[in-house]
């Protein structure tokens, strides 16, 4: 427990006492003039400030897409770095408006005061081990020490894997990300467990020799990392959902940041509706009719975002895998903009 979590919990109690029903989130966001997003404490590729202090990453840009939808400006966002433990109380108390932070969609979380929007990343939990250990799959990990960060679903995964395969894994649990990673690289643990993409990020940016480490899945089960909003504000949930959908649809239609202005004159009625040439979609959500156009114009489509942050255009070089569109054999499913 650290004081931040304690403070948040206390705030939760006070906030819950003070007001039963905050007005719709979108009104308070508009009145404030910017969006407040929960961000990670530095996972390159998903959410981390660059050397100029500008936040970058897939989760960060998902949040920027919502800012574009509401304000037409991707920079009207404030990012609040949160630990794994702090993130959900921060959302519940209204300290942040949206939580896109490699958050796994689980029943217990969903049933406890938050709502999940559309997954922006499908992922398996992975182990990273030193290549020199010769281990390449979970079954060979008997007796290994595993560095685990608290405040994640991975604590449960460690236990599930260990008991299912009788591996007698020895977890070493830390409260913060930096300590967990440092303990792994110093050799305190044989393995580091977390989302495989975060492992790829850690390997690419924090190890001296990225080729000296291998990553493999801890389980065969896939997780959906999904931005979440507070329970009980359906209008806000819709806005977040369709901002993410705009990114997916743009990729499906082949609309990119570069060609979006050419696509505006497209004859395809679906594209016309999508880009707001034919009005109605934005208005229905209480947004600008051209919100999808604005999102693509400022951020590109989902594929571009993926490549830029975690895919082939980034140091992480993560394969699209399950994060391809359904039409390419992945799990990303664009819904109809009409």
């Amino acid at each position: 427990m650290n004081w931040k979590t304690a403070t948040l919990a206390a705030t939760l109690a006070v906030a819950a006492t003070a007001q039963a029903h905050a007005g719709p989130t979108v009104d308070s966001v508009k009145a404030r003039g910017h969006l407040i997003c929960g961000a990670s404490q530095g996972t390159v590729g998903f959410g981390a400030p660059d050397e100029k202090g500008y936040w970058r990453g897939l989760d960060v840009e998902t949040c920027r897409a919502v800012a574009v939808a509401v304000f037409g400006d991707k920079d009207k966002v404030e990012f609040v770095p949160l630990s794994g433990q702090q993130r959900i109380p921060a959302l519940q108390t209204g300290e942040i408006d949206i939580l896109p932070r490699t958050l796994t969609w689980t029943l217990q979380r969903d049933a406890n005061g938050i709502n999940f929007a559309t997954p922006n990343y499908y992922e398996f939990t992975g182990f990273m081990v030193a290549r020199s250990s010769g281990v390449t799959k979970v079954e060979e990990m008997t007796g290994a020490s595993v560095c685990v960060q608290t405040g994640s679903t991975t604590e449960v995964v460690v236990n599930d894997v260990s008991s299912r395969l009788n591996l007698q894994l020895k977890p070493v649990v830390f409260d913060n990300v930096a300590a967990t990673r440092q303990a792994f690289f110093s050799g305190r643990c044989d393995a580091l467990i977390t989302d495989a993409s975060a492992l790829a990020s850690v390997r690419a940016t924090q190890s001296k020799d990225p080729d000296g480490y291998v990553i493999f899945p801890a389980t065969k089960y896939m997780d959906a990392l999904t931005p979440a909003v507070r329970h009980g504000d359906d209008q806000w949930l819709d806005i977040v959902n369709w901002s993410i959908q705009a990114l997916l649809n743009a990729e499906m239609y082949g609309i990119t940041q570069a060609n979006v202005d050419e696509m505006v004159v497209s004859g395809d009625p679906r594209i016309k509706r999508f880009l707001g040439v034919e009005p109605g979609n934005g208005k229905a959500l209480g947004l600008d009719d051209k919100f999808a156009y604005n999102i693509v114009k400022q951020l590109g489509n989902y594929g571009e975002m993926f490549d830029r942050n975690v895919g082939k255009g980034s140091p992480l070089k993560i394969d699209r895998g399950p994060n391809k569109l359904f039409s390419d054999g992945g799990l990303m499913f664009p819904l109809a903009f009409q």
Binding site: M1, N2, T5, A6, L8, A9, A10, L12, A13, G84, Q85, I88, P89, Q108, R109, N112, G113, T150, G151, S152, E155, V156, V172, V173, F174, D175, N176, A179, A183
Partner: peptide
């Protein structure tokens, strides 16, 4: 908890994360 020893604070932190019941746990 800074050095990864599971005293009460670290355990309660994990419980909060697993159950979301921050007020009760605190």
């Amino acid at each position: 908890l800074a050095v990864g020893y599971p005293e009460l604070g670290l355990v309660v932190g994990t419980v909060i994360n697993q159950t979301g019941q921050a007020i009760e746990s605190i």
